[in-house]
Every structure is written in structure tokens, then in C-alpha cells.
Design a protein around this nucleic acid. Structure first.
Lengths: 126, 126
DNA sequence: TAAGTGTATCAAGTCAGTTAATACACTTAA
DNA sequence: TTAAGTGTATTAACTGACTTGATACACTTA
């Protein structure tokens, strides 16, 4: 379910947080579904419970999960979460496109990149 | 010329490195132009010479500058540098677009974002 | 020769991240 | 009621990256 990358410069708790965000946003984890307990997750990843605890705290703080003491952590049923995520994605995209423009990359080259990924018509560059 | 941001999580040497890359790629610093010495830069930023030394080492390793012992550090005249930079920018763009697609954002919304920045026609969404 | 340059080294301190151990309150099921 | 599993909190300790501060040496230029 989760894979830690020790070559990654980022802290472990941050990797766990991000991975769960993906699983939740992609619907792999359904609303109100229980996620692994702090201790079991720590065992599975060969990591201290503290590290998982921190990841879960972040997830709760940002609204991805909610916590019930004694029972466990559960996926939030927030629809606003998806709207928020959409805005974040578009914001990153804007940043990338802006950098491209300021680097002198043409509009056509940017559009080609978009079409390349969305499986549209690609322009022959031979 | 350079501004350090202590709220930034990244190390100081990395901020210096990145800033010089920008100045070089944007042509603010011309090829073969001398950049500030390790010591003077350290003074200006109220930082240890070691930190600047490290930043300059990174810049030399990645080809942005070249060093002449006893004389100083100078901006590389590499044209390949711009090609490399272009590839990096496009790579970031691909990542952003891919995330957008996998998040269910439509091609039209992505294109709209591109046009928004490139000053093209925007689609009426009312 | 003196001043400015890059380079190298070392010891020390700071800080974030992580580990390890322990404890406590709560919920659930036997 | 009891035992097991849950979240939560605390403390001490370790590690590694980053940074500082000091010093030293070789080179170039005026």
C-alpha cells in the first residue's frame, strides 16, 4: 500500500502523508473507510509509531482523515477536498507554464506537451 | 543581487545556487562575466565563506560557471546550458500536466490555463 | 611584496528527523 | 470485568545535513 523511498530527501512522515493523500483522492480509500492503525502501519514500514503518528496528524490537520480515539483513523467524506486538490493542481500547472513562458519556450511547444500527455494529435517534428 | 529567505526550508547554499542559475539563464550575468568572490559574497549575505564556496562548487559542477584559481569565478559561455535548461522546464511541465490528467482535470481546463498565461483567447466559463 | 582570489581542513554547534521506551485514556469484543 | 487494540503524549537519545568560525595554503594581479 505504501512504499518508502530512502533515496528521497524528504522526511519519511511526509512521504507517508503524500501517499495517503493520493490513495484518498484517487478513491482507492473510500470515505469513512478505516486506514491502518498507527502501530500496524509502523510495523509494516519498519518505522517508529511516532513517525506514522506525525503523518496521520498532518492528514487530519489538512482534513483528509478524521480520528476517533480508541477506534482509529478514517477517510474524510469531504467533497470540498477534491475542489481544493483541483485548485492545487492547477496552481502547480500555472507555475510550470509561467516558467516555460519566461524561459522563452513557445506556446506551440507547450501545447504540444499537453497534447502529448492527453493523447491528442501530435505535431510531426521530423 | 541575491536575497536569502530564512523561512525557506531549503539550505542556504541551495538558494544561492538556484538564484545564480536564474541570473545566468536570464542573461543578467553575461558569459565570461566575473561573479562576486567567495569572500565578498559571504560578507554581503552575512554568511560563512564555506556556504558560498559550496554554492559555487555546485554551480561549477553543473557547468553554470567556471573557476580560475587566484582570479575568481566566471559565467560559462555554454549554449548547451540553455538547451539543458529548456529540457528541465519541459520536464517539469510534463509532470504538472500528468498530475492534472490523473486528477481528472479536463484537457480543456489545462489548455485554458496555458492560454491564460500566454495571453491568448480565454474561454468564457460563465 | 601585498592584497585579493580559490581551495581545503577541522572542530563545534544547531536543528529536523527519527528512534526507542513508556505511559495513559479510550473503545471493542470476549 | 477483562484483555486487546486503538489514539495520544512525553522524554531521552541518536543521526545527519547544514552552518559557523578559524586557520592555512597556493595562486594571480597590481
Amino acid at each position: 500500500m505504501i512504499q518508502l523511498d530512502y533515496k528521497d530527501r524528504r522526511p519519511l512522515y511526509e512521504q507517508v502523508t503524500e501517499r495517503f493523500q493520493e490513495l484518498i483522492l484517487n478513491g482507492v480509500l473510500q470515505p469513512d473507510e478505516k486506514i491502518p492503525s498507527v502501530r500496524s502501519m509502523a510495523m509494516e514500514l519498519s518505522v517508529t509509531p511516532n513517525t506514522i503518528q506525525r503523518a496521520y496528524s498532518e492528514l487530519e490537520k489538512s482534513g483528509y482523515i478524521y480520528t476517533v480515539t480508541g477506534r482509529g483513523n478514517f477517510v474524510s467524506s469531504s467533497t470540498a477536498l477534491h475542489a481544493l486538490h483541483r485548485e492545487n493542481i492547477l496552481s502547480s500547472l500555472k507555475t510550470a507554464v509561467t516558467k516555460a513562458k519566461s524561459s522563452g519556450i513557445s506556446r506551440e511547444d507547450v501545447l504540444e506537451t499537453v497534447e502529448l500527455i492527453y493523447g491528442g494529435v501530435t505535431y510531426d517534428t521530423n
